[in-house]
């Protein structure tokens, strides 16, 4: 099944708000070798001007990929997820995510194009608090590798 080009411009409903806590931030920071005390020490984070411990800049992928899942698993989108590789990723942060934020994501399909037998899909996910404060914009390109047949 080919990737459906008619999905360009389509947006999916926002994900259920996820309550970011200090334990998630600490475990993500440890996994990516982020040693800045603002990730683990609430006093250090407050001294630096933040409401609470600060997420490493790529933690947002947890929420953007969850939001993208509604699209990539949509049967009518025509995406064979077993053939997907991550091609590009970019984040723009509007303010750092901190413990205590209730985070939600809304994905829009920006582009679907064919290149060399593969489909390249670019999505944009707006990450915000449940009350609507913009946190980050995630732009992701996935490549759906073409089949042998």
């Amino acid at each position: 099944m080919a990737v459906n080009p008619d999905f360009v411009g389509r947006s999916y409903p926002s994900t259920e708000p996820y309550a970011v806590d200090a334990a998630l931030i600490a475990s993500f920071a440890a996994a990516v070798g982020a040693h800045d005390p603002v990730h683990t020490d609430a006093e250090a984070a407050r001294a630096a001007g933040y409401a609470d411990v600060v997420a490493p800049p790529t933690l947002v992928v947890r929420f953007s990929q969850e939001a993208e899942r509604a699209y990539v698993t949509d049967p009518d989108a025509g995406i064979d997820y077993t053939r997907v590789v991550h091609g590009e990723q970019r984040f723009v942060h509007h303010r750092p995510i901190t413990a205590g934020d209730e985070v939600t994501g809304t994905t829009t399909v920006d582009a679907v194009r064919q290149a060399g037998g593969h489909a390249m899909i670019t999505t944009r996910t707006e990450i915000s608090t449940a009350s609507g404060e913009a946190l980050a914009t995630s732009m992701s390109t996935i490549v759906v590798r073409g089949g042998e047949d």
């Binding site: 982020a34 800045d36 603002v38 630096a48 800049p57 790529t58 091609g87 590009e88 984040f91 942060h93």
Partner: peptide, 12 residues
């Protein structure tokens, strides 16, 4: 200060 990273992107 890790909160100072405002953009990050790459190709894999």
């Amino acid at each position: 200060d890790a909160g100072r990273v405002v953009e990050l992107g790459t190709r894999f």
